[in-house]
Design a protein around this nucleic acid. Structure first.
Lengths: 367, 367
DNA sequence: CGTTAGCACTCTCCACCTGAGAGTGCCAGC
DNA sequence: GCTGGCACTCTCAGGTGGAGAGTGCTAACG
């Protein structure tokens, strides 16, 4: 089944080791599924009516009381129905849930949509975010795949008509960065070297021959051995590579925030605030990186399992994607703990494997 | 003063031609400023107390009734205070407002922050959005500057180690796009032509010599006259240029949505929905393009002046920036009609002139 | 004639109350 | 061990009433 791991930095009780009776299990399952559906605390009578449990409400009440003693359910107040706790969801996800696989028609449609869009473009990530949000009715997050270690691929040096000189660096993973040459600094350090297009071309040839596939420190070391102009530019390139190494999450694509807004638990607005804030800054994603890269597959982080306090009413269903040791991205959905896990998990899993596949096919069969 | 134009496609009553008495003017000003500050409908007594009008509440009431008859104020209900109407804000912005210029220290700080960040990077736009949002306590929007007409600048053709071939196209305005070569199509059409790095290099030389500064249709025409490989790639390049021409707003950077969330008029959440939706899709920005490019300077669109129905409780303070006929971007803030215009307008104006300046200096003194 | 004081009136807002309903816990009996 | 019954608790929706804020109108004032 799902390879899923309790993934939280805070408390990591991998697989809660409860021995539940069959009745307790089916009551817990029914409570979770009903509550996920309705957002209303669920009472014993309603449960019996709706889920044909073949026992009386009183019996269910006893089971509920036991589950509450185990910490799997809670009470908002004395005479309200039961609500799953974070631990209750966790148990449900680990051993009660029946996953709802995507049906083949949906898969085909998704695949088709991806084929319409250029792999490296922002559109690609936007599409992934849109599909995730649509399929799960939650907010979704996608970050572009990015190498842990940026390496030199190919450089182009351009003298534009208006006097600007550009470095266009294609990294080994296909990402491109451009930077203007700081000509005043260049002239100060190498006053006698011309920087016309011919000089740039020959520098580019030298750089491409000498630096192919090197990471920042090696580029910096090799730079001292190149001819003046090429060497100076190699320093700049090393800077670009270091910059790329320093960034963990380059950009965050989100979609479906409105879905979260529609959930009754966030209708108030003030509750939404920390989430919006977290999504806008990318730090909350960066916190996830070490967790998600620990193992492959889908990771589920429920409520307070998340070390980030602002997220203690939020669940995350996330997976890494990308080419191992090449480029790594993250994708997943985010919503209230009351989340349709049986739907979200397979969707995230499918999308991560699909994007894996697409990225790896981009790198060609050589690799 | 501000060059400001009623900018809405729907109703365009440029400069409402009201002749107000001095008393009416000062009452209207006081009502607007008090309401902007407190978000509470303002009554006659409170107004007299807070703004030292040297008349009795009754007199103010009469003035208010007159202003209401003119459509500048409204009543939420019989016995509540007065609230400015869209028209009231309009009049205030046109002729009552005392703009609060940014103080020199702030300007210097902003300038300094910009100098820390690469001009063409996403960081640049993110910074602009962050500054706008912070200074005005509203949501901000920034779109990258983009040419109306994409033109060829320089191309680089790269054979990466893994077999991928990339086109990296630097456009005349400095923007960069990359695209993988569709090698299977290439091999079908030009089965005998080699596509190793040497062949690519000579094609690139040819392309750079022949296509400099051309727009899509000219590239397409010229493509037929090039050697096979270069010609085929020129077709692909023409496609890239056309694609760039087709996109009006490439990307939208927003910040400070939380500020809108904090406004009492949006605490409900459901009201926020259309705004979040509009910000996520870029269409609402595209609607603004024709309006904003009609004249330079800051444009203010208040509430229902906006043709977009979802925005009828929203005001926009926007300005274009960029190099005329080169690249054009948009920036501005967005908030409830109850917006601190005297602060927002100078801030948007300053940022647009600053970014103008920076962009133009990028293009060099040649231009 | 513009300004002001006074007054009746309107409407919201909040606090309070109440009854209905849902749910619980427990106990006794099957 | 399961179930029916029952007393109890708590929320929620609806209704009520008074306080407060604000208006519009009128009549008097300088």
């Amino acid at each position: 089944m799902t390879e899923m791991r309790e993934a939280a930095p805070r408390s990591a009780p991998s697989r809660p080791a409860f021995e539940l009776t069959d009745r307790q299990r089916s009551v817990l399952r029914a409570v979770v599924e009903d509550y996920v559906l309705t957002a209303v605390p669920v009472g014993s009578k309603a449960l019996v009516d709706r889920y044909r449990l073949n026992v009386s409400p009183a019996t269910v009440r006893n089971a509920m009381a036991e589950l509450e003693a185990l910490g799997l359910l809670t009470h908002p107040h004395t005479s309200a129905g039961r609500v799953p706790s974070d631990l209750g969801y966790r148990f449900y996800v680990e051993s009660l849930m029946r996953e709802a696989e995507l049906d083949p028609a949906d898969r085909l449609m998704i695949r088709h949509q991806f084929s319409q869009v250029q792999l490296t473009s922002n559109e690609w990530h936007r599409l992934a975010a849109a599909i995730l949000a649509g399929a799960t009715h939650s907010a979704s997050v996608v970050t572009p795949a990015k190498s842990r270690r940026a390496r030199y691929g190919h450089v182009q040096l351009v003298a534009l008509g208006d006097g600007t000189r550009l470095i266009v660096l294609v990294m080994a993973d296909g990402n491109v960065v451009q930077r203007r040459l700081d000509r005043s600094a260049l002239e100060r350090q190498l006053p006698d070297v011309p920087v016309d297009q011919a000089a740039l071309d020959s520098a580019a040839i030298e750089l491409n021959a000498e630096l192919a596939n090197l990471a920042a420190p090696h580029v910096r070391r090799r730079a001292t051995k190149l001819r003046p102009l090429a060497g100076w530019i190699a320093e700049a390139i090393a800077g670009l590579l270091e910059e790329a190494d320093g960034v963990i999450v380059e950009e965050v694509f989100t979609d479906g925030i409105v879905h979260v807004l529609e959930q009754p638990e966030f209708s108030e607005g003030t509750k939404l605030r920390p989430i919006l804030e977290a999504l806008q800054r990318s730090d909350f994603i960066e916190q996830l990186v070490p967790v998600l890269t620990r193992g492959r597959g889908v990771h589920v982080i429920i409520g307070r399992e998340n070390a980030n306090d602002a997220m203690h009413e939020i669940s995350l269903v996330f997976a890494p994607y990308g080419a191992p040791d090449r480029a790594l991205g993250l994708l997943g959905v985010l919503g209230p703990t009351r989340m349709p896990y049986p739907r979200a998990i397979p969707t995230v899993r499918y999308l991560s494997t699909l994007m894996n596949e697409l990225i790896n096919s981009q790198y060609g069969e050589t690799q």
